[in-house]
Design a protein around this nucleic acid. Structure first.
Lengths: 342, 342
DNA sequence: CTTGCGCCGTCGAGCGGTTTACCGGACACT
DNA sequence: AGTGTCCGGTAAACCGCTCGACGGCGCAAG
């Protein structure tokens, strides 16, 4: 079956090929009358211009690549879900489509990340998948490619990013716990991302330098996937390492909830014996018992903002971008005054 | 900055434009020696051919569209996650990319579903989003478009599909419960999809016609989103409607878990007083207490198989497709002999 | 010494749009 | 009437790659 082209529309409507093209692109040059007559034919045939041809001529694919990390069950991850929803919403409203990819070993090895942009399959790339080992991203430091890290950053590499301010989050969390009198704190950190490291370091820094009395922080790693399971195991390690701790701080809610689970299984009251605090404010945080105190990260908003910035990069409205989004404290039942504290 | 093209590679390697193209497409016509010399230049410049030009000339975008339903938090839905993972895995291994879309009102209204295929932005569409109201899908009945329903079907419309066999699942579930002596059963159905209706009808049919004694089934709708919350509410309705029921059958695990929650909140023992059964076998089903008896639906496999079929459709290896995948019974602790039964 | 044929590579006509420079006519102003 | 401007439409040069038709060359067969 013969596919209709812009030429058919031109013939049928009695205008030139260029005119039809201009109409389809809403070019102001064309009068309303002409526009109407052309559109009538377009509607009649339910014509949609070939996007490859369009992309070739206009040098733009109107597509953004989104790369997610290679976790087990990535697509059921609530953290990513929020991010992607935000990105999708923004992209779609601007007429851009989303090309989905997972940063598997194969993806990296075959330079797919480069290929996507070099072949112009995508106009820009929103990278959600970075960890501290993503050294191959250096290609994007000064290349002509539109690249943006989502909720992540890379100290030392000149890469665009939009991220929540993890250092600020660490400060909020530390101040909350220290203010409640906690001086021996266990930290379940995520150490496979730079933002995770930033959080850990800032948290420790604030704790050590607390005016009302320096606090001691013992930290363990919560595992690659920042999961509930990882938090559970980490809590056990932490309690062995610092049995008299009065608070556990986890780098995200999922690990915090895992830690709470361990405490429940081992008959420690939260918050009477141990306060627990997370980061992100996922929906579940409000539903566990007691409710989880946390630092709110609006990931949906990060998605929106990331995509906004990416579109600006693509359109050349900005040349680079390094945004840090604010966070806020959410106090629920899982944190209380330190036992033994005044 | 000037982007390199196939012409540059041709010049630099001393071969013609066509030769380079043939090399890049692994055409057997070209000798190994030539191939090597061309590839050396390609590697040297890290050249990737422009995909729009390729798509235009070859009339194929090497892209598949995946359309997911417009649920709240779609991207954290485990059911969808499995499906998408399967599709992604298959598509990627065949060199196809995934274009993601959500079946929002806007998506439907603007005929985006048609546009994607008509504009050749995607070679085929995997549609996960259908419900009984998706009448607009009729465009795909005999069009030239490659379209496939994933884990869904449309009686009365000639549309391709790959789905789990919901009628078979209903039979497995009904036989299990009836075999345990249950004769008064509450059914939490999903009535916004054809597969859901099929499940309900087949379940009721088997129950009514059970050789060892007809059973009574009361059914209520579990809500649009097949969620835990919906199951919770449905259980309440069901117990009001048929207080002496001995089993609750839910059309998916999430609703079943919601129902169990209601039973726990209202002090009914599972399975001593009420047996509960779900469908899907999501990971959580094994972790609730007692473990949830269910019918296993391997959604990852459905994803794989759907994508396989779609690729066959795209390549013209098959003209249509209507696959039903088998399911299997998984018995855990949530189902037991009917109280009062022999 | 022709002729035929297979092997390798090349020519060139598209693929279906975008976009810029150009152009004819209407209108206003002198 | 002559001329400058604006308005609305068009011609045509690409955009970068694919692929079927074509052809040169070397070698075996006639």
């Amino acid at each position: 079956m013969k596919r209709r082209t812009i030429k058919d529309i031109a013939k049928e409507s009695g205008f030139s090929l260029s005119t039809v093209s201009l109409v389809l692109n809403n070019h102001p040059r064309i009068s309303q009358a002409t526009r109407d007559r052309v559109m009538a034919v377009v509607k009649k045939y339910n014509f949609f211009p070939n996007s490859a041809a369009r992309g070739l001529a206009s040098k733009s694919s109107k597509t953004l690549s989104v790369v997610v990390p290679n976790l087990t069950r990535v697509f059921s991850d609530i953290y990513l879900g929020e991010l992607i929803s935000g990105i999708y919403e923004r992209a779609t409203s601007q007429g851009y489509k989303i090309l989905l990819d997972i940063a598997t070993a194969q993806f990296v090895k075959s330079q797919e990340y480069l290929k996507l942009l070099a072949s112009r399959r995508a106009d820009g790339m929103l990278f959600i998948a970075s960890d501290i080992h993503a050294d191959y991203l250096s290609v994007f430091e000064n290349g002509p490619y539109k690249f943006l890290l989502v909720n992540h950053l890379f100290p030392g590499k000149k890469l665009n990013y939009v991220s929540v301010d993890y250092a600020a989050s660490a400060r909020l969390a530390a101040e909350h716990l220290l203010g409640l009198g906690h001086r021996r704190i266990g930290l379940i950190a995520g150490t496979n991302t730079h933002t995770g490291l930033q959080f850990r370091d800032e948290f420790v820094r604030v704790a050590k330098g607390w005016p009302a009395g320096s606090a001691q922080v013992a930290w363990v790693d919560g595992g690659e996937e920042w999961s509930q399971r990882g938090g559970y195991a980490a809590a056990a390690k932490l309690m062995a390492q610092m049995p008299d701790l009065t608070a556990i701080m986890a780098a995200n809610d999922r690990m915090a909830i895992g830690a709470m689970r361990w405490l429940a299984d081992n008959r420690r009251e939260v918050p009477e014996e141990v306060s627990v605090m997370g980061v992100d404010d996922i929906q579940l945080a409000a539903y566990v018992n007691p409710g989880l105190s946390t630092v709110r990260h609006d990931l949906y908003q990060v998605g929106i903002e990331s995509c906004n910035r990416m579109l600006q990069l693509v359109k050349g409205e900005i040349a680079e971008c390094s945004d840090l989004l604010p966070t806020s404290l959410v106090v629920r039942g899982s944190t209380g005054r330190a036992r033994g504290g005044k």
